[in-house]
Amino acid sequence: MVRLLLSVSVILLLNACAKQPYAASNKIYKTKVKALAKSIQTKAVPLQPNDIKQPTENIYTTNFGLRKPNMVILHYTAQNSCEQTLQTFTKPATEVSAHYVICKDGTLHQLISDYLRAWHAGAGKWGNNADVNSSSIGIEIDNNGIDSFSKAQLNTLTILLASLKKQYNIPTTNFIGHSDIAPTRKIDPGTKFPWEALAKKGFGKWYADTSTVQLPAGFNATYALRIIGYDVTNVKAAIKAFKLHFIANNVTDDLNEAEQKVLYAVMSQYL
């Protein structure tokens, strides 16, 4: 009887572990959130008594709230499965994460609160913003960089983007890709990502027919890229990033006349 009870206990324990493969990382998440909550109650700058005259009592403002994101950065995972990505994002050693992961079947995982800073953008820059992680939401879509995105994924993505745009009042221009903010390092979400379809729904900008567009005399492509938001420290990389997003079928580091017209048409929407 004792042996039977022990066997049953072992089976129940194994089943519990099997059903909660992310129990350890979930515990770390909760611990870190508690630590962050405690840290905001602490003085940001520790001062010695003789540094600055101290008040006789602490006074706190009543007017504050959580910081809100105002950008959405879209990625592909460049991994072989959603499960592999979830494992990557729940290991402290990887030091990489995102707010959301969308699996091929459309399953949506939220891994971190929108109000917290995920580590998805890296050394990215958009316009004058050189700390994209602090102002953005990162969405990773399960895709190896070769396959097309599934209908279920794109349906989930559209619903999620609509919710985020409404909740945080995110500007239409601020739905961009990882390659847009990191042109020298990244190419995701890649040439198969349906930017035009998303733009028609209000997530990002696109352009109309450019056959009648007349380029102004002395049109400066570098200036146009900068107006849109691209980091033009490396102009050739910025051109490739632009073409990944808006042209996709000829991703080189130069612009022919037709591609310059596309650039001009896109830039005109940012003026």
Rank of each mutant, 00 (worst) to 15 (best):
M1H: 06
M1F: 11
R3K: 13
L6D: 05
V8W: 12
I11M: 15
L12N: 09
L13H: 11
N15Q: 08
A16K: 06
A16F: 12
C17T: 01
Q20Y: 03
A24F: 14
K30R: 12
T31E: 15
V33N: 02
K34E: 04
K34N: 04
T42P: 00
V45P: 01
P49A: 09
N50Q: 10
I52A: 05
I52P: 00
Q54C: 01
P55Q: 13
E57H: 13
I59S: 06
Y60G: 00
F64V: 07
F64L: 09
G65H: 12
R67C: 10
K68D: 14
L74E: 04
Y76A: 01
T77R: 03
Q79R: 09
S81C: 10
S81V: 07
S81E: 12
C82N: 12
C82S: 13
T85K: 08
Q87N: 15
T90Q: 13
T90E: 06
P92L: 09
A98M: 07
Y100W: 13
I102H: 06
C103S: 04
G106Q: 06
G106N: 04
L111G: 04
D114R: 01
A118V: 05
A118F: 10
H120I: 03
G122I: 02
G124Y: 12
K125C: 11
N128F: 03
D131C: 04
I137K: 01
I137M: 05
G138D: 05
G138Y: 11
I139K: 04
I139V: 15
G145S: 03
F149I: 07
F149A: 10
S150M: 03
K151D: 14
K151E: 14
L154C: 06
T156G: 00
L157R: 12
I159P: 00
L161N: 09
L161E: 10
A162P: 00
K166D: 11
Q167V: 10
I170Y: 08
I170P: 07
T173R: 09
F175A: 00
I176M: 06
I181K: 00
P183F: 04
T184H: 08
T191C: 09
F193A: 02
P194H: 02
E196S: 06
A197I: 08
A199I: 06
A199G: 08
K201L: 14
V213M: 11
P216T: 08
F219L: 04
N220K: 08
A221C: 08
T222M: 11
T222Q: 15
G229Y: 11
G229W: 08
Y230E: 12
D231V: 09
V235D: 11
V235L: 15
A237T: 08
I239C: 01
K243W: 09
A248E: 13
N249S: 13
T252A: 07
D253H: 07
D254F: 13
N256S: 03
E259P: 02
Q260L: 15
L263M: 05
Y264C: 09
A265Q: 07
M267S: 10
Y270I: 00
Y270A: 00
L271P: 01
